[in-house]
Simulated assay, not measured.
Amino acid sequence: MKKIRITLIVFIVIVLSIAFFHWFMAVERIDAGCVGIKVNLVGNERGVADITECSGWVVYMPLFTEIHEFPVYTQVKDYDPFAINAKDGSEFTVDPTFSYKVNAIKVPDIFRNFRRGLPELENTYLRNVIMDCYRNVANLYLSDSLISHRPQFEAAVQTMIVEQLKKEGFEFQQLTSNLNAPQSLKDAIDAKNKTTQEAIQSENKLRKAEAEAKAKIIAAEAEKKANDLKASALTPLIIQQMYIEKWDGKLPTYGQVPQLFQNITK
């Protein structure tokens, strides 16, 4: 009987110890590169306490206090694609990848405003900001303009995101949009580009034909001028001199002796 009592007392002590350490005493390690905040759950100071814990071990009472850990190094979030509309109603798809950091000094304010950790904020507040910025800026562009001015569009989106997030303690680092136009618009642009290319090719062929025709005219005119010059230079004396240079010294055996050689036979 005494043994049973001792066993029961030990059991009760163990249970009470476990309950005590579970509800009244806990130790948590804040990882390096993170900021831990201590949140009071009871009393007049309910909310984020003035103390911001850095990396290290933190002793607290779970019944009255919570510890939340915020990483302050670069976070990368790859969001699911979503639709945006241009000014003329055409629907584009954006598949963004977003990189950001949390301002360590702003961590208590972030938790005070949102009461959520980073994973939840990424899928709620941050995602909503990014979607709204894309949709607001896209609504300023017509479809053709959005495609041809994609760098300006993405720069405007980034500027708006930076302004929105900076106020809440988030530091923008990089954004990849992966903007994708609707297939119907792609087909229309391809057809337009094909027509433009064909027009350019036709114009080039016409210019080439005109150039070749001008070249032939210039060559013909040059040849005519050369022939006219030669003809004007062939005086009777020059023609006689050419005959003499080509003569082999023999007179014709038959027929009439050309006028050029008649004086030679006398």
Rank of each mutant, 00 (worst) to 15 (best):
Y60Q: 02
K87G: 01
E69D: 10
T97W: 03
A86L: 00
M61D: 12
M61V: 11
V102G: 02
E69G: 04
D88L: 01
P96T: 00
V102D: 05
D80A: 13
T52V: 15
G89W: 04
F82P: 02
I67D: 01
E53R: 07
F82C: 05
E91F: 10
T97G: 12
Y100P: 03
W57F: 13
V59R: 06
V76Q: 10
S90R: 13
Q75W: 07
L63W: 09
C54W: 10
K101T: 11
Y60L: 01
A83V: 13
D95Q: 12
C54G: 10
T74K: 10
Y100M: 02
I67V: 15
D80N: 10
P81C: 03
P96I: 00
E91K: 15
H68W: 11
H68T: 04
S90K: 14
V72C: 07
S55R: 08
V58A: 02
V58Q: 03
V76S: 10
P96S: 00
C54F: 13
A104D: 14
E69M: 12
A83Q: 12
F82M: 06
P81R: 09
K77L: 11
S90T: 10
L63M: 11
K101A: 11
D80S: 13
D95K: 12
T65A: 02
H68E: 08
G89M: 05
K101D: 15
G56N: 04
S55W: 14
S90A: 13
V72F: 07
A86E: 00
F98Y: 15
I84L: 08
S90G: 07
P81M: 05
T97D: 06
H68I: 06
F70T: 05
C54T: 11
I67M: 05
F64W: 09
Y100N: 00
K101P: 07
P62Q: 02
S99Y: 15
T65C: 02
Y100H: 01
V72N: 05
E53C: 14
Y100A: 00
N103I: 10
V72I: 15
V58M: 02
E69Q: 11
V94E: 05
A104Q: 15
V94H: 04
V58R: 03
L63G: 14
W57Q: 07
P62V: 00
V72Y: 06
S55V: 05
S99K: 15
W57M: 09
Y100W: 03
F70D: 03
Y79L: 04
F64N: 03
T97S: 14
P81N: 07
T97M: 14
K77V: 14
I84E: 04
D95L: 09
V58S: 03
A104G: 14
T97F: 05
T97P: 03
